[in-house]
Amino acid sequence: MDLTQPTPRITPDSDERRGFRAWLPYQSTDPCCEPVAHIRAENLSIAYEGHQALRNVNLEINRGCITALVGPSGCGKTSFLMSLNRLTDLIQRCQVTGKLHMNELDVLAQTTDLLHLRRAVGMIFQKPTVFPFSIRKNLELPLREHGTHDRMRLNSGIENVLKQVGLWHEVKDRLDRPAQGLSGGQQQRLCLARALVLSPDVLMLDEPCSALDPISSGIVEDLIVSLRGHYTVLIVTHNLAQARRIADHIAFFWSFEGVGNLVEYGTAQTIFETPAHELTAAYISGARG
């Protein structure tokens, strides 16, 4: 498969950043993405209370890839994620403009069935947000909500998804105990299971490891890697090493005078070895941000 397929929308303008060559050897992860655009943003802008948070993002995310969104805090990465499943609707006076397509679906259209959209787009937050009831009920709630009531199918669905996140053997004897009794890492995996139980197309993770200890973080990271090819994964991370380990593509955001911009987008290899923009180069070398 051709790794150069996704075209960076911001063209390299000069060669002056050659000096910033990546200083670590790059180990390429097995390419697995189909070069098929799954999510397409055109001139996407987001504003809160009239203040721009993200300006004119143009981006095509490939089906089945892991795409990492990196950049300093406050440059609109989370806002971008939240616009994809229209969680931005929950925030007062938040305006999203531009075009956003997921396959053929116009995400930003008034007529879009939000519940249907959100079913197809799973989301994991920075802090594990298990609901304050049992492990079983945490997983059953979305299933029931989307039409599964049959006991057998519920049980098998729960078992499959818990096995998928490697939690089954840890919790199979205490499915009816409060989910908040789990450790942080287990809670985050439960959240992942809760998102996967709806078999979404897209999975968005907003710094899923930042609230976890290194060991749990490693487990969750391996899990994310195992999702490659099955889901289109978007992950916001501040951990460049992690982005480098797991991502096929990197989207680099930067905030100019408080407004977030997509500076560079490309394969992980390109971004880490031959970044086109000097900001990218500075950021990944640790000189800025």
């Binding site: 499943n85 969680l87 079913r119 787009v121 799973g122 937050f125 947000t129 709806l198």
Partner: peptide
């Protein structure tokens, strides 16, 4: 109620009433 509950519930495609 933690706002994270509300966001996660919406992200799971729960309707407002659910």
């Amino acid at each position: 109620v933690p706002v994270a509950y509300i966001h996660s519930a919406s992200a799971l495609g729960l309707s407002r009433w659910s």
